Amino acid sequence: MRTAVLGGTGKTGRAVAAALERRGHEVVPLGRAAWADLPAALVGCEAAYLVAPNMHPDESGYARTAVSALRATGVPRVALHSVVAPYAPAMPHHLGKAAAEDVVRRSGLAWTVLQPGAYLQNLDLSRTVRIAYRADAPFGFADLADVAEAAAVVLTEPGHEGATYELASRRATVADLAAEAGVDVEVVSPARWAATDGAALDARVRDWLLAMFAYYDAHGLPAGTLPLRTLLGR
C-alpha cells in the first residue's frame, strides 16, 4: 500500500513513516512544500496520515485543505493525529485539534482518529527537568514509537474505520519519571518561564503554552493505557 504522511518531515511524521515502512508499505512523506499542489503529490496513494505542525494556528483549515485534496485525488482512507482531551476550552491548541477532528469525521472518507497523550520524548530526563506546572500532576504519557506503531496498525489492518483511540503508554507524573531517571525537577512560575524559556517564542505560541501549563497544573492530562496496549497486542 502506498501511504502519504502529511506532515511527514516532523518528528511524528518521520516516526509514522518508519513504522509503515517496517510493515513493507511505500511511504510518501509530504512536508510544507507539497501543499503548493497537494492533489498532485497524493496521486497513487491509497491512504494518508494527517498530522499538523505543532501549535498550528488553524488546524481546521489545515484539515480542510488536506481532506479536499484527498477527495479530489480519490484517496479513500485517512487517519488523523489529534490529542488527548481535544475539547478542552482552556487550551486553544487542543480546541484546534477538536475542530480538525470534526472536519475529518464529516469528510466522507474512511477515517480513524488517534488521540495521543503528552510525549515522553518531550521531557529531557538526562538532567534536571524544568516545568511550569506542579510535578505531581497526573498524565497519560505516550511514547512516540508506540504512537507511530499504532498509526501503522490502524492504516494497514481492517476494522479501525470510524474509531477514535486515546493513546497512552503509561500513567505517571513528571515527579515519577524524574525519580526513575535519578534527576531533579525544578518547578518555575509561569511568569518566570515566559521570561526565560518562552521569551523567544512567538507571542501566540507562548500564550497557548502558558494556557496549557495552567491546565496541567490544575488537572494534569490523564489518559488510559488500555487502547494502546490492545492496538499493539501487548
Rank of each mutant, 00 (worst) to 15 (best):
E186G: 01
A4T: 08
R206Y: 08
G96Y: 08
V16Y: 10
H25M: 04
Y49L: 02
H160R: 06
V185D: 08
Y215K: 02
G24I: 10
V78W: 04
R170L: 15
D207V: 00
T112G: 01
E157K: 13
W35C: 00
A100T: 04
Y119G: 01
V83W: 03
L226G: 10
G224P: 01
T12S: 14
A99E: 15
L109A: 04
R2Y: 00
D102E: 15
L167Y: 06
P190D: 11
R71I: 09
R77N: 00
L221P: 00
A218N: 00
L50K: 00
A63G: 08
A179V: 12
T173G: 06
G13Y: 07
A191T: 14
E59D: 12
D102L: 14
R64G: 06
A4K: 06
D136L: 05
L232I: 05
F213D: 13
E186M: 07
A15R: 10
D207R: 14
S169C: 12
V185K: 09
Y119K: 00
H93R: 01
P190Q: 14
V67F: 02
R105L: 04
L210D: 10
G117Q: 10
D217S: 01
F139N: 06
A199C: 07
F213Q: 10
H94L: 13
R170N: 00
D37M: 12
V83C: 10
N54I: 14
P89N: 07
E21G: 11
A168S: 13
P116H: 06
V103Q: 01
A137Y: 08
A199V: 14
E166Y: 00
A69M: 07
D136Y: 04
L221I: 03
R170H: 11
R64D: 11
V188T: 13
M1H: 11
Y119N: 02
A135P: 11
N122K: 00
L155V: 04
A110L: 11
A148W: 11
A66D: 05
A34M: 08
Y87E: 15
L167G: 05
V78M: 04
L95K: 03
R22Q: 15
V78P: 04
L20C: 09
R130D: 08
V5I: 14
S189D: 13
G24P: 10
L228M: 12
Y216E: 08
D37E: 14
A145H: 12
L232W: 07
W35Q: 13
G162V: 05
V16D: 09
V75D: 10
L221Y: 01
P138N: 07
G24A: 11
T164I: 15
V183L: 06
A148V: 08
I131C: 02
A52T: 12
W111F: 13
T225L: 07
A179S: 15
P39S: 13
G140R: 10
T156Y: 05
V183I: 06
R130G: 02
A19C: 11
A145P: 02
P222V: 12
P138K: 09
A137C: 09
G220M: 05
G13C: 06
A63F: 10
A142N: 07
A203C: 00
D58Y: 05
V51F: 01
A181R: 05
L123P: 02
T230A: 14
A142E: 01
A181F: 08
P76E: 04
L80M: 02
G10L: 06
G44H: 05
A223I: 00
A152P: 01
